[in-house]
Each structure stands twice: as C-alpha cells, then as structure tokens.
C-alpha cells in the first residue's frame, strides 16, 4: 500500500464527510424553506441572503445553549447515545459509489471509499446499529417517557428493517451481487433497476421513510403532539446531534435509493462522452441531482401526509409490506425463470 493511496483515500473521506455534513446542514434550511413554500409562506429569510446563513445561526445557537445532563442519568451512556447516532449516520457513506473512476496524475482514482463485496449488507448492518443510539439515549436519560419513546422507535425500526431487507432480496436476485459498485455498473445508461423492480422500490422507499423517522412515520419524535421522543432530556448540541443525524440519514438513504434503483451515477447518453474524466464528473453531478431530488421528495411528503397512528404503523409494516415484499420476491423469481434477466 503506497502513501499516495492513503492520501487519496483520506482526501476522499474528508470530502465525502464534508459534503454529507454540508448537505445535511442545508437540508435543515431547505426543510424550513420548503415548509414555508408549501404553506404559502416564505420561510426563514433574515440570516444572510434568502436565509442562507440560517444553518450557521442554528448551529451557533445549539452550541451556546446550556448543556444539561440530568443528575440521575448515566453520564457515559448519555453522551454515547447521540454520538452513536451521529457516527452510524456518517459511516454508511463509505460504501456508496459516488462516480466512475477518475484518471488523475497517472492514477486510477476510485470515487468510493471502500468497494467491499458485501456493500448492501454493510449498509443494513450500520442502519441496524443506528437503533442503539436511540435506545441508549432513551435508556440513559432515566426518564420513563424517554424510555417508552426509545422502545417505540426501536420497535418501529426493527419492524421496517424486515420489510426493507425482503424488498432488497428481490433486487439482489436480479443483480446477483451485493457490491454497490457492481449494482451501479449494471445499470449503465438508462438500464435502471426501477423499471424492473417498481414494487420493490416502493416498499424500499416506504421503509426508508420509516427508518429515517420521517413523516408519515415520525412517531419517535411527533413534535406536534409530544414534547419529544427519546431525546426529551437532551439539550444543546447533543440534541442537535440527534436531529442532525436524522438529516444525514435522509441524505444517506437518498443516496442508497438512487444507487440501488435509479442508476447511481449513470445517466442517459453517458457513452457518447469520450473523455472518461468528464463523463465521470457528469456522473457525479447526476448522482447528486438524484440525491437532491430524493431529499426534496422526503420534504415534500413530510408537508403533505399526516402521521400514522402507532397501530396503523405496525399493521402497515407487518401485515402489508412484509407480505408484499415476499410476493415481490416470488414474482421476481418467476420473472428470472421465464425471461432470464
């Protein structure tokens, strides 16, 4: 392993971390802006031109707020909770292929931190770990309401992970690989998986709404009805971490949906561009456009659909999505058997 390789990866990791944080930061602004637009208002517009400095103002505010750790709370776990949430939200980006290889300085630079052959499994593993942040936070607060909320949101996440995993199995049967890079490459041009797996995508999307705790599945938070969920006892930047992790999760799940079902960095007409570097850079831009469109969709749905009741949520997860996902697997199997891929 040469030194250039390490530098290259370090630069890539920092860039991806920075980009995902900045996007998450501005998603918080976009959320408020678009919420305004959907409600015939204008949203925050005082901090900087068009309110562009609003996320900074929010950050400064959260950092300077008084930090309260309840006396009965276990301090170590109390701090671990939000950190774990933030950490698991950030590390998923490692396996996402951001674009095709670049040729720079005589080197072949891959725009993916780690092309591991179990990429999809890695994502699922990390997403499941995300529950620990919520659980530990709710437990360490030593508040029965926080604990109840944590249990509630943990059971929501676990229920929807099953349907999510089942919906992805149909896709994996088609692609025959777990590596996100290979899945992306198979969808070159307009050969996107969404055209073969519309039902699977629908299930996957609904589940990722539930996994990221977004409306209509934002029961862990319910800010319109409850004081808060598992983060009731949190204040200052620890609360900020919990809320921010949600936005990073949104970014990551948009990226995963885009790379699994919407062709990742592929775009129509990519074979016409002769310079591979240009083609790769346009690919990166296309990928980010898809991600941003998904984020917009997340926000759009949030300001349209009302929240589910808890029993409805469980019913949808267990009685509708899981059977549908299994039917989808059967259909895909039949399709592969009769038509080939």
């Amino acid at each position: 392993m040469d030194i250039a390789f390490i530098i290259e990866k370090l630069i890539l990791i920092s860039a991806i971390l920075a980009i995902s944080l900045v996007i998450a930061m501005y998603t918080t602004l976009a959320e408020r802006k678009f919420a305004g637009f959907f409600q015939d208002r204008v949203g925050p517009n005082r901090a900087g031109p068009w309110g562009l400095l609003q996320p900074l103002a929010d950050g400064v505010k959260l950092f300077t707020k008084e930090e309260i750790i309840p006396t009965h709370a276990g301090t170590f776990l109390f701090v671990l909770g939000p950190s774990l949430s933030m950490f698991t939200a950030c590390i998923t980006t490692a396996v996402i292929p951001w674009g095709q290889d670049l040729f720079l300085f005589g080197r072949n630079i891959s725009l993916q931190v780690a092309d591991i052959n179990v990429g999809v499994l890695y994502v699922f593993g990390v997403v499941s770990l995300g529950v620990y942040g919520v659980m530990i936070g709710g437990w360490a607060s030593n508040n029965k309401f926080s604990l109840l909320a944590a249990v509630r949101s943990a059971s929501q996440n676990i229920s929807y992970e099953i349907a999510m995993g089942l919906s992805i199995i149909a896709l994996l049967m088609m692609t025959g690989t777990l590596s996100l890079r290979e899945i992306s490459e198979q969808q070159s041009g307009m050969n996107w998986n969404i055209f073969y797996q519309p039902l699977g995508f629908l299930i996957f999307m609904i589940c990722s709404f539930a996994e990221t705790n977004r409306t209509p599945f934002d029961l862990p938070e319910c800010e319109t009805e409850l004081v808060g969920g598992h983060h009731t006892e949190y204040s200052s930047m620890k609360l900020g971490f919990y809320l921010f992790a949600e936005y990073i999760n949104m970014f990551v799940s948009s990226a995963i949906m885009a790379s699994l079902y919407f062709g990742g960095y592929n775009y129509p007409g990519m074979h016409l561009i002769s310079n591979p570097n240009v083609a790769a850079l346009i690919g990166v831009a296309a990928f980010f456009t898809k991600i941003l469109l998904f984020i917009f969709f997340f926000i759009w749905v949030r300001w349209t659909v009302p929240r589910f009741r808890y029993d409805q949520l469980m019913k949808l997860g267990w009685k509708v999505l899981i059977p549908l996902a299994i039917i989808n697997i059967a259909l895909t199997g039949a399709g592969i058997l009769f038509f080939g891929k």
């Binding site: 959907f38 015939d40 659909v305």
Partner: peptide, 18 residues
C-alpha cells in the same frame, strides 16, 4: 397520497401571502 402531493405542489408555486 399522490393527490395530496399534487395539491401541496400547487401551493409551492403560489404567490406567498407573507
């Protein structure tokens, strides 16, 4: 839900009353 989404999208481009 799709109908609802189309309604909110209409409001997105409406003149703001602020």
């Amino acid at each position: 839900i799709l109908h609802g989404l189309s309604i909110t999208m209409k409001h997105f481009f409406k003149k703001k009353t602020t």
